[in-house]
Design a protein around this nucleic acid. Structure first.
Lengths: 185, 185
DNA sequence: CGTGGTTTTGAACGCTTGTTCAGTTAAACG
DNA sequence: CGTTTAACTGAACAAGCGTTCAAAACCACG
């Protein structure tokens, strides 16, 4: 049921999908769904919360490694993890406004934790002189927006392999946080 | 009416907003709206299409200038333009799936035109040796995703001025497309 | 086969949806 | 002021919504 709901939410949006559609996808009547979820809102919330928790749990935090390697690991992890769950990523970013206030607060907090991990790496790197960033918060959001955008177009069977995409994004992020060469073009 | 619909669509999503809510916001009965739009779908489509057309029309294309300046102009333009119309940008990216297939195709094509402008700048710059990019398509999408993400957090009365945000994003984009210095950190 | 416990059905509830339209109200013009 | 034109109302329509629940179907175990 969660899989069916996820696919439908991702394709049509939470508000546009009815319990009857989900039930039909599962091959069951609408009433039967209520043995597995108290209501429609909880269905969305559970999907989002478990996704964010898995994301945080899977996130590598090798704080012993050099910051540049930590950053590279973060970039590659983000792309790879999100590639495995495109629908979940999609609704986690798109359906925030469909959450009731209490549920929204929970998800927002989990998201904040994730962003903080990246921001910490940038701050430490900036302190060590390894990175040159302006505002770390802005850089954090810029990187995450850029990485998350991958899910909107990346398809495993497409022109570029996952590895190639990771390489290119790491290249771009690496340049972004490193001082540019002094030269006139 | 368009303004009311826009605000509500942006806040709650197209599917979650009813014609009666829009009418109430305008201070009118639901039936009166049908003097101005044939149906709800057209309301969304018209908002999105006029937005994309204004975007393309406002886009500066100073092809005589050096590519680096063209790129800078694009970055600053994108941020400034989107800052003036946060709701429109939001729905133009979020409500694509609420469009019927024919309408979707139209908007998608307009979006493609916009992306092509940026990609052309990158390609020319790469050809001239001014830029060092891997895959231009990937770089294009990465930059646009990064820039568009600004609207999710930027508030004019916030900590950073529009100008400061533009400066920082231009800095990041500039580094992204320029060869990094050869040095060990 | 019979019995106990889950699951699922299918109908129903009250409510909202997008849209239509005859009838009322308001505005514009001579 | 009278008339024409435009705008809006308010009720109605069929359809769909999330959710509930008694009754039926299913399943495992003795």
């Amino acid at each position: 049921m969660r899989a069916a709901a996820l696919a439908l939410f991702a394709r049509h949006g939470f508000a546009a999908v009815s319990m009857r559609q989900i039930a039909a996808e599962v091959g069951v009547q609408a009433g039967a769904l209520y043995n597995y979820t108290p209501d429609k809102q909880s269905l969305l919330f559970d999907l989002m919360r478990s996704h964010m928790e898995e994301l945080l749990e899977a996130l590598p935090s090798n704080s012993a490694a050099p910051v540049t390697e930590q950053l590279e690991e973060f970039v590659r992890f983000h792309i790879a993890f999100h590639d495995e769950r495109p629908d979940l990523v999609f609704i986690a970013y798109m359906e925030l406004r469909s959450l009731e206030p209490d549920n929204f607060a929970v998800i927002e907090q989990l998201r904040g934790r994730y962003e903080t991990v990246l921001e910490s790496i940038l701050q430490i790197g900036a302190g060590e002189g390894a990175f040159s960033v302006g505002d770390t918060k802005v850089t954090t959001l810029a990187i995450i927006a850029m990485l998350t955008g991958v899910t909107t177009w990346f398809r495993p069977e497409g022109r570029l392999s996952l590895r190639a995409v990771q390489d290119q994004y790491w290249n771009m992020v690496h340049r972004m946080v490193t001082v540019a060469p002094e030269r006139t073009v």
